[in-house]
Design a protein around this nucleic acid. Structure first.
Lengths: 244, 244
DNA sequence: AGAAACCCTGCCGTTGCGTCAAGGTCAAGC
DNA sequence: GCTTGACCTTGACGCAACGGCAGGGTTTCT
């Protein structure tokens, strides 16, 4: 048989068979005088074995092991391992689908998929066009995605965010966009902000995730000078009171 | 932030982030005077979004689509598609695991994994050391793997194989290994073989799979001259009576 | 001054083939 | 005899999403 014939017989492509030769999984058969590979039925039996094994999900080197082993002993071992691997994959897929369905259940959000906890929080927040508030919401998605144990933080933030008074605070922060770094409104705003934060929140800063060298500076760089003053004071308060 | 810092922040590797830049998924940030990339918190938000999407199983080009789309509308579409894809994968894995468990339940066989139907057939066959019988068993694994609808054939073969008389037929075929092509034992053996084959089997040859140009010649090439005579006559009978 | 811990670019390796590219071979029809 | 079409040959690149290494520069700590 020529390669196309044996390929049709065992249900592989000619390219796959040549590939198996190339990587040494299957020895090259004799050649006819014109250079064509001449396959025997024995080769077909071997290739069919390979096909069954690859269809089970074995990689080519595992197929090689399974074929090399004269007894079927190690094969059982490989299959056991493979089954465990497939079980892991199946669990992973199931978890992804689970999270997917949670996402699909919620209304789509331009910020991309977020945890259910954060989605609930954002839905609960009062509607406002404040740029600072929008910025904060984005940063919350960052915290949501990176910090383990952000659940409790979000719960605490819920009490803060539900307060319609925060809208006014955001607007006062917005008003500092063009102000100089020594604007007199800075100190009272920082004080009011700190007063609005519930005490437990100071202690709930996750130690991993957001707390990374360089993050503070990068965060302050996002704000105008006067705003950065305010945010900087808040952050200092968090560091002091959270870590004592 | 430098690249290592933002990588730690969002839970990616520096290599992955550079890769995203390379393929244009994420724009390159400004550089510091020393050439280091300078990341902002906005970049971190973006990267966190990318991470969430890739963790859901989206490919990078799908992530790009999801990000480019200003609304979250197309995202839902992509996620729907993704869920369907995951469902397919899950089903495929489950089927593989199903077949795997069927294989693991049976005693391991040096010929590799075979269908349950064939395994039952082989277990039912009488024990013999006949080389021809061994050869035939190998060829059966080929037929098992390649022909769709080989189930009925195997059922019909069950009635044939269970007959202890076939052992004698195999031994008579073995005896022709060194015989010339005009040995007088050829004709009677061919006749007895044909008589042993149940009538329905002639009609049950699957049209796909084994029937491939070049297969007959290859099969005959596996046998010694006198044996090839016998097998050739059998095959002719099959062709005539199966298709007549 | 030297070591540690960062950063940079760029290229190869992974898995299992698909897909050209650029030819040589063979049977059939004009 | 010549073309056409369906085969075959080797060889090399492409893919997905990075990991790892080479070979070099920067900053910082000690």
């Amino acid at each position: 048989m020529r390669i196309g014939e044996i390929a049709a017989l065992v249900g592989l492509t000619t390219r796959a068979i040549r590939h198996y030769h190339h990587v040494g999984l299957i020895p090259e058969p004799e050649r006819r005088s014109n250079g064509y590979r001449a396959y025997s039925v024995r080769d077909a039996v071997l290739l069919a074995r390979v096909r069954r094994l690859t269809e089970l999900g074995l990689r080519l080197d595992e197929v090689r092991d399974a074929l090399a082993d004269d007894a079927g002993r190690e094969l059982a071992e490989i299959l056991d391992e493979l089954d465990a691997d497939l079980a892991r994959q199946e669990a992973a897929i199931r978890e992804r689908r689970c999270r997917l369905s949670a996402l699909l259940a919620e209304p789509p959000d331009a910020t991309g998929p977020v945890s259910p906890a954060l989605a609930a929080l954002l839905a609960q927040a009062p509607r406002t066009d404040s740029p600072s508030a929008a910025q904060d919401r984005e940063y919350l998605t960052l915290l949501d995605a990176t910090s383990t144990g952000s659940q409790e933080m979000l719960a605490l933030l819920g009490t803060l965010v539900a307060d319609p008074a925060v809208v006014e605070l955001y607007e006062r922060l917005d008003a500092l966009a063009e102000a100089p770094a020594d604007d007199p409104r800075i100190a009272p705003l920082a004080a009011d902000l700190m007063a609005a934060v519930p005490e437990e929140l100071f202690a709930a800063i996750p130690e991993d995730g957001v707390v990374v060298t360089g993050f503070k500076e990068a965060l302050l760089a996002e704000y105008a000078p006067a705003q950065a003053e305010v945010v900087g004071r808040l952050m200092e308060a968090f560091v002091e009171r959270g870590r004592g």
